[in-house]
Design a protein around this nucleic acid. Structure first.
Length: 567
RNA sequence: CGGGGUGUGGCGCAGCCUGGUCAGCGCGCAUGGUUUGGGACCAUGAGGUCGGAGGUUCAAAUCCUCUCACCCCGACCA
C-alpha cells in the first residue's frame, strides 16, 4: 500500500477526549474513529490489525476442533425471557421495536440462539461433544463506555460454546479452550495471567479470565507472591488476619455520642478496628439484607450477590434503612426481626466485638457470635486485599490492575434446561446438555496490545498483528535514483510475499520517521542518498534503537528473512 | 443514575466573568518558491456563525432557560 493513497492520516495533535495510551495512539495513527459513545469505526490500518487478530483466533479455534457458524444480531426478546436473562442483563440489553411493535434484542451474546439451535439438531450422546463458534458483532448498552476500544457498546467478539454429555467432558472442552486461548495470546505476543473469576448470576462451577497486566486496566487482580494463586478481586479469597484469642466477656452498653463510622468508633473507644462489627445494609431484589463483617474488612458485593443468588443488589438508601426500623450508624444484629442477616466468617471467628446498640449514640461491647446473635448465613463475603494471606500457601497477596482480554465459563445446564436442549444418553435417558462458553473481544485485544506495546513515539506492533510488516521509507524521493530504487524494492518486497507500507509521500525525513514510529510497523527500510552511497538501505526494527545497513542487492532476501524469523 | 467538566473551521485551543470591529491563534489543508536523516521556512489562499432551541437586549459566542452530545470520577458492567 502506498501511503499517499491510504485512507486515513496521522494526527499530530492529541484528541482531547482520549486519556488511555491505546485510545490516543489509535486515534492519532488514523486507525479508528469514534462515531458515538462506545461506538467506533475501524479505518483501513486498524481493520487490518483486527483481521489479523481474527485470523489467529479462527485458526486456533479450528485447531481446537471448533466449527465456525454465524448467528443473527437480531433476536426475539421471547428467547431471552425464556431463560430469564432479559432480567439479568436488564438495561444493558439493547432492544428495539419492529414495525409490528414486537420487541427485538440486539444480541449481547448468543447462548440462547445457539442453545436453541443445538437443541434442535442434537438428539443423542453420539452427537456430542460439539464446539461451535462465531466471530461477530455484539451489543451491550454499557452504563459507561470508556478507554477507547477497551469498553464499548458495540464490539466484535469471538464466542465459542461447548456442548458436552457430562462434567468430565466439559472439563476436557474447558481445558482445550484454555490452551487455545493461551496459543492465541502467545501468537499475539501478549503475556497474560490466567485468573479465577466470578461466573456471575448465571452460576456454574468454574470461570477464568485472561488478564493482561496494565496500569490502565479497570479490573483488579489479586495474586500471591509465592505460589500461582491469582484471581479477580471480585472472586479472590484470602486468609484474614487472625485476632489474638481472648476470653468472651459479658455484654456492656457504652455511650458513643455521634460515633457513626467504624473509624470514629475505633478511635473513640481506643481499640483496633478488628474489634468492631461493621453493619452494612443492602437491598437484594427488593429485600433488605443485613450484612456484618469485621470492622477492618470490606464487603465484597459480588460475593454477596452470588451468595444471595439475587439479580439486583445495591446499598440500601437511608429511606430503605429507616423503613426497616434500623438506626443507621448504630445498627445492631441483636433483636433484628424479619431481616435476612449475613455474617462474614470473620465475625464468627472474632471475639468481643463492639456492635451497634440499635439506638442513637449507644454501642454494645463484648458482643460474641453465636452467643449473642445469630446470622442466617455465615460465609466469606470479604474483599481480599493486598497484604492478606494467600488461601493456598503462606505467601502474601498483591493487587495489580489488569485488562480482561478473555473469559471462559463452565455454564452447566442452566440454559439447556430452560431451552429444552436435551440429549439421550447411553441408557436411553434424556438429559440436559452441559454447556460452557468462551469469549474474546477482538477490539479489546487490539487495544490491549497497544497498551502493552507502545512508547512515547507511538505504537510498537508485534509482528503477528501489525497492519503491515515493512515500512518502506525513501528520503528525498525527488532524487530519481532514490525513487527508482524504492519503487523497485516496493515491487520486489511485495513479490516476496511481504506486506509493505510504502511511504511514497514527499515529506521531510522527520515527518516520515515520526509517522513510521507512530504507526508502529515492525520493520523500517530507509532508502536515502546516504545509504545509496554505500549501495545499501537501512533496516531498523521499530522496537530497537540500532539500525543496520544492508546491500541493496540483498535487501529483499534479508528483509524477508528478518520478518520470517521475527527478529 | 449521582458528582464534575467540555462543546468555537479537519485537529488542538483563546475569546465568555466585565454583551458592541472577537470571530482569532497554532497545527493541518491548497498554490508558488526556498529547503530537507528526526514533525523545515517564506509568501499567498480556502475554510467556522460559535452543539441545538427559546428568551433578555438597540445589539448575544459572551447573559438567562430548556435541550442534545461527548469526556472524567463513582455506581454499574456473566
Amino acid at each position: 500500500m502506498r501511503l499517499s493513497e491510504l485512507f486515513g492520516k496521522t494526527q499530530r495533535e492529541i484528541p482531547s477526549e482520549a486519556d488511555t495510551a491505546s485510545h490516543r495512539l489509535l486515534l492519532r495513527a488514523g486507525m479508528i474513529m469514534q462515531v458515538a459513545a462506545g461506538v467506533y469505526s475501524y479505518m483501513p490500518l486498524g481493520w487490518r490489525v483486527l483481521k489479523k487478530i481474527e485470523n489467529i483466533i479462527r485458526e486456533e479455534m479450528d485447531n481446537a476442533g471448533g466449527q465456525e457458524l454465524a448467528m443473527p444480531v437480531l433476536q426475539p426478546v421471547e428467547l431471552w425471557q425464556q431463560t430469564g436473562r432479559d432480567k439479568a442483563f436488564g438495561r444493558g440489553l439493547f432492544t428495539l421495536l419492529d414495525r409490528r411493535e414486537r420487541t427485538l434484542v440486539l444480541g449481547p451474546t448468543h447462548e440462547e440462539v445457539l442453545t436453541q439451535m443445538v437443541g434442535h439438531h442434537v438428539q443423542s450422546y453420539r452427537d456430542l461433544p460439539k464446539l461451535l463458534y462465531q466471530i461477530q458483532t455484539k451489543f451491550r448498552d454499557e452504563p459507561r463506555p470508556r478507554g477507547g476500544l477497551i469498553r464499548v457498546r458495540e464490539f466484535i467478539m469471538k464466542d465459542l460454546y461447548s456442548f458436552d454429555v457430562d462434567e468430565e467432558k466439559l472439563d476436557v472442552s474447558y481445558r482445550k479452550m484454555i490452551q487455545a486461548y493461551q496459543n492465541i495470546y502467545d501468537r499475539c505476543d501478549l503475556p497474560t495471567l490466567l485468573v479465577e473469576a466470578d461466573s456471575g448470576a448465571i452460576g456454574g462451577k468454574d470461570s477464568h479470565e485472561f488478564m493482561l497486566i496494565a496500569d490502565t486496566g479497570e479490573d483488579e487482580v489479586i495474586r500471591c507472591d509465592k505460589c500461582d494463586y491469582a484471581a479477580n478481586a471480585d472472586k479472590a479469597v484470602s486468609t484474614k488476619r487472625p485476632i489474638a484469642p481472648e476470653k468472651p466477656l459479658p455484654m456492656e452498653e457504652v455511650a458513643t455520642p455521634g460515633m457513626k463510622t467504624i473509624e470514629e468508633l475505633a478511635n473513640f473507644l481506643k481499640m483496633s478496628k478488628d474489634h468492631t462489627l461493621k453493619a452494612v445494609f443492602y437491598v437484594a431484589d427488593g429485600q433488605v439484607v443485613f450484612a456484618m463483617i469485621r470492622g477492618d474488612l470490606d464487603v465484597n458485593e459480588v460475593k454477596l450477590q452470588r451468595l444471595l443468588k439475587c439479580t439486583d443488589l445495591h446499598l440500601a438508601t437511608e429511606a430503605e434503612v429507616s423503613a426497616a426500623g434500623i438506626a443507621a450508624g448504630y445498627a445492631s444484629p441483636m433483636g433484628l426481626k424479619n431481616i435476612k442477616t449475613v455474617a462474614d466468617d470473620s465475625v464468627a471467628e472474632g471475639i468481643n466485638f463492639v456492635a451497634g446498640g440499635n439506638k442513637p449514640d449507644v454501642h454494645i461491647k463484648n458482643v460474641n457470635y453465636p452467643r449473642d446473635f445469630k446470622a442466617d448465613i455465615v460465609a466469606d463475603i470479604a474483599c481480599a486485599r493486598e497484604g492478606d494471606g494467600c488461601p493456598k500457601c503462606d505467601g502474601m497477596l498483591k493487587s495489580t490492575p489488569g485488562i480482561e482480554i478473555g473469559h471462559v465459563f463452565k455454564l452447566g445446564t442452566f440454559l439447556s434446561t430452560a431451552l429444552g436442549a436435551d440429549f439421550i444418553d447411553e441408557k436411553g435417558d434424556s438429559r440436559p446438555i452441559i454447556m460452557g462458553c468462551y469469549g474474546i473481544g477482538l477490539g479489546r485485544l487490539l487495544a490491549a496490545a497497544v497498551e502493552h506495546y507502545h512508547d512515547d513515539k507511538g505504537i510498537v506492533w508485534p509482528l503477528s498483528i501489525a497492519p503491515y510488516q515493512v515500512y518502506l521509507c525513501p528520503l528525498y524521493r525527488e532524487d530519481a535514483n532514490i525513487s527508482d530504487v524504492a519503487e523497485k524494492l516496493y515491487t520486489e518486497l511485495q513479490s516476496a510475499g511481504l506486506e509493505v507500507l510504502f511511504d511514497d509521500r514527499e515529506e521531510s525525513p522527520g515527518v516520515k520517521f515520526n509517522d513510521a514510529d507512530l504507526l508502529g510497523i515492525p520493520l523500517r527500510v530507509t532508502v536515502s542518498p546516504r545509504t545509496l552511497q554505500k549501495d545499501s538501505v537501512e533496516v531498523k526494527w521499530r522496537a530497537e534503537k540500532e539500525s543496520r545497513l544492508v546491500p541493496v542487492a540483498d535487501a529483499v532476501v534479508r528483509v524477508k528473512d528478518l520478518v520470517q524469523r521475527g527478529k
